[in-house]
Amino acid sequence: MRLVISALSGALFGLGLLVSGMTDPAKVQGFLDLAGAWDPTLIFVLGGAVAPMIVAWRIAARSRRALTGASFPPAPAPRIDARLVAGSVLFGAGWALAGFCPGPALASLGWSGVTGLSFTLAMAGGMIVHARLAARRSLQPA
């Protein structure tokens, strides 16, 4: 059941990205280009996506467990640290350079060709490098 829900959610997420137009890097860069022919579509995508999720969090707050019996993820500590800010700066810069963020990069692999595959492999490589560095850091005495 958990596997089916994961797959259904992934499929719906991918189709939503496709319908929204966010799998087109030129459209994402059009949103980030305030000094050019600004394309506001991403705001509608974000608004449309956040609305049902606000409802979902309300339902989660009132229920003890998810449908499959799992507990809900606890709220993260409201800690704003340098890692969060620096990581978001790097992400925003890469996002603007290619017009891809992780979801749309995966969702468009079926037609994004060498460009999309190169981005996705480099992104996966970056994630693996980060995981290795994080593992090494956690082994060192604080």
Binding site: I5, L15, G16, V19, F44, A56, A70
Partner: peptide
């Protein structure tokens, strides 16, 4: 684009709601 963006966004939100309420997981790509 406005309609497509909103519709696609609702689908994205629904997929995240499904993963949270179904599996108790956060949808973060």
């Amino acid at each position: 684009d406005w309609i497509a963006g909103l519709l696609g966004g609702l689908m994205i939100g629904a997929s995240a709601a499904l993963l949270l309420l179904g599996n108790g997981r956060i949808l973060g790509a």
